[in-house]
Structures are given as structure tokens and as C-alpha cells.
């Protein structure tokens, strides 16, 4: 057996890269787990819980857009679908919350599967427009079927008999489980295939990658994760409104992924916390938070395409060299 040539041994494989990112994300989650020891304020715990909601959404969207190159503009919609699934089941069929959440994952995953199949051939602006229309149609349906959803007033949803701290760790547990799941997926050959599809679909097919399967799988998984986040959030907030599916929500998710670094495991998760917590904090000092974040999205996309994760990586490299 020949030994691998030495210079090539220095190359970082995708799997290694993913592992580094996974470790960084775990460290970040460990810090999040420690925060309640110092912060007892229920308001700030609530802010962090919502951050985790967005972290799940940003992570799920990143799997689809950052790794697979399918630029969907409907992540918030799948959260809305998940939230309404459990909300409606609870309201009309007395389905208990936990079962409702499971149903939400299944339903949003199925809708994601169908949409993913339908848009298989669409790329770039065409895909963005189709998913945007899907998002708007779903929102219109939610806000106009007033007999069933109570429209923009929103649907009251049962809470869980747990306190805020328990909610905090529930969200964190779900986030960490999803993180591990994504890690296992991306570290396997699936990680290679998804990124290959993102870079060049035809070349991926030539290499024997089952593009239809993997693209649909990414769509389904991403939708199911968003649906899970939405359903959890519904029971946390005890209210579901069509606002969950607003394009502006998708804008926020997209901002987090772009600022954190698309196509990296840790970036979008960490950025979800930074963006959301900072925005709550900035709200107190003038309320320019959304202006700042929108500007950051444009600046990052224009000048730092690898996001905060890329900047951090470059900083570490420079520090090691010095």
C-alpha cells in the first residue's frame, strides 16, 4: 500500500472542517446552558428562548441554502405550518401538545417534501420566487380562513405546565439534538453530496450522486426542523398568528445565516443568538437594530462572504502564524 503523499495530508477534509465547527457550536451551546446560572431575569431568558427558536430556523435553512444551494425563501412559513398544525390539532381535536408537536414535524416535513419535489428543477431567482409565492399564499390562507384559524387575531394554544427555566432547557435540548443530527449527517457522505450539488449539479450527477434524492431530503429535513421550532414556539407563546410566516421573519433568518457564515455548522447558530440578543439590547438604545442588521447582511454578503465564522477562522490563523 502506498502512503498518502505528504502535502495532501495537510488538506482539511470536509469531514474535519465539519467536526471543528461542531465542536465550536457545542462550546457555544455549553455557554448558553450556563447563562441561567447568572441571569435569572425572565425577560432575558425569554429573549434567549426566542434566540434558540431562530437558531433552529437558521440552522435548518442553512442546511438547505448554505450546504445544498437551494435558496428557499420559505423557512418562516414552515415554522408557521408547524405552529398551526399543533395549534389546530389542540383546539379542534384536543390533541395533547407533545403529540401535536410530533404531528407538526411530520406535516411540515411532508409539505417540505412536496414543495422540494415540485421545485427540483428550479434554480436561483426562479426558486426564490416560487418559494416566496408559496410563503405568501400560505400566509394569506392562514390569515383569511378566519372561521378556522381566527385570522390575524391568532389562535390560542395550550401551554405546557412548566416554568420559564424548563422551557429554556427544553429549547436548548432540542437545539443540541438537532445540532448533533446535522453534524452526523454532514460528516457522512451526505455532507459531500449536498455540497457537491450546491457547487455543480450536473457534475454531481456525472459523479453518480442521486441529486433528486438528496435535494428532496435536504428540503424535507429543513422543513421538518423549522416545523419543530414553530410548534415548540406555539406552545411557549401560547399563541399562533400568521405573522410567524411573514417575509420579514425569513429576512431575519437569512440575516442570521449570512452574518454567521452560510455553509458552516456553527456560524448561523451562534449568529442567531448574537443577532437576536443584540437586537433586543439595541431596542433599548434607540431601536436602530433592524437597520444595523440589514446593513450588516449587505456588508457581509459583499465583503465577508464567509461571515463571522470566516472572520474568526482568519483571526485564529493569523494568531497562530504570529
Amino acid at each position: 500500500m502506498t502512503q498518502p503523499a505528504t502535502p495532501a495530508a495537510g488538506a482539511q477534509l470536509t469531514t474535519t472542517k465539519t467536526t471543528v465547527e461542531f465542536r465550536a457550536a457545542l462550546v457555544a451551546m455549553a455557554i448558553v446552558a450556563l447563562i441561567p446560572l447568572g441571569v435569572g431575569n425572565p425577560y432575558w431568558l425569554g429573549v434567549l428562548i426566542v434566540s434558540m427558536y431562530f437558531a433552529i430556523l437558521a440552522g435548518g435553512w442553512n442546511l438547505l441554502a448554505g450546504y445544498t444551494g437551494q435558496f428557499s425563501l420559505a423557512p418562516a412559513t414552515f415554522a408557521m405550518i408547524g405552529a398551526y398544525t399543533t395549534g389546530l390539532l389542540g383546539t379542534y381535536y384536543n390533541v395533547p401538545p407533545l403529540l401535536g408537536i410530533v404531528a407538526a414535524v411530520v406535516v411540515s416535513g411532508l409539505v417540505g417534501l412536496l414543495l422540494g419535489r415540485a421545485v427540483l428543477r428550479l434554480v436561483g431567482p426562479y426558486l426564490a420566487l416560487t418559494t416566496l409565492s408559496f410563503a405568501e399564499i400560505m400566509r394569506l390562507v392562514a390569515s383569511n380562513t378566519i372561521d378556522i384559524t381566527r385570522g390575524d387575531l391568532g389562535l390560542g394554544v395550550a401551554g405546557l405546565p412548566i416554568g420559564r427555566l424548563a422551557w429554556y432547557y427544553l429549547f436548548l435540548a432540542v437545539l443540541v439534538v438537532l445540532l448533533i443530527l446535522f453534524y452526523l449527517l454532514l460528516r457522512s457522505k451526505a455532507g459531500l453530496f449536498l455540497q457537491a450539488i450546491r457547487d455543480d449539479e450536473v457534475a454531481a450527477r456525472r459523479a453518480g450522486v442521486d441529486v433528486v434524492f438528496w435535494k428532496t431530503a435536504a428540503f424535507t429535513l429543513s422543513a421538518a426542523a423549522s416545523g419543530l421550532a414553530g410548534a415548540l414556539y406555539a406552545h411557549f407563546a401560547e399563541l399562533v398568528t400568521p405573522e410567524l410566516g411573514l417575509i420579514a421573519q425569513t429576512g431575519l433568518i437569512l440575516s442570521m445565516a449570512v452574518i454567521g457564515g452560510m455553509g458552516t455548522l456553527a456560524g448561523p447558530l451562534v449568529a442567531a443568538f448574537l443577532v437576536y440578543v443584540l437586537s433586543e439590547w439595541l431596542r433599548d438604545v434607540g431601536g436602530y437594530q433592524l437597520v444595523v442588521f440589514a446593513a450588516l447582511v449587505v456588508i457581509f454578503a459583499r465583503f465577508f462572504r464567509e461571515g463571522l465564522w470566516g472572520l474568526a477562522k482568519a483571526a485564529v490563523r493569523r494568531w497562530r502564524q504570529a
Partner: peptide
């Protein structure tokens, strides 16, 4: 046609 944002080894691994 290559996978431009993946390194050479990963291209082959795909």
C-alpha cells in the same frame, strides 16, 4: 466542471 468550493480531495471523494 468541478466542485469549486470544495477542495481537491473532497472533489475526488464525492
Amino acid at each position: 466542471r468541478v466542485f469549486r468550493r470544495m477542495n481537491v480531495i473532497d472533489n475526488l471523494l464525492v
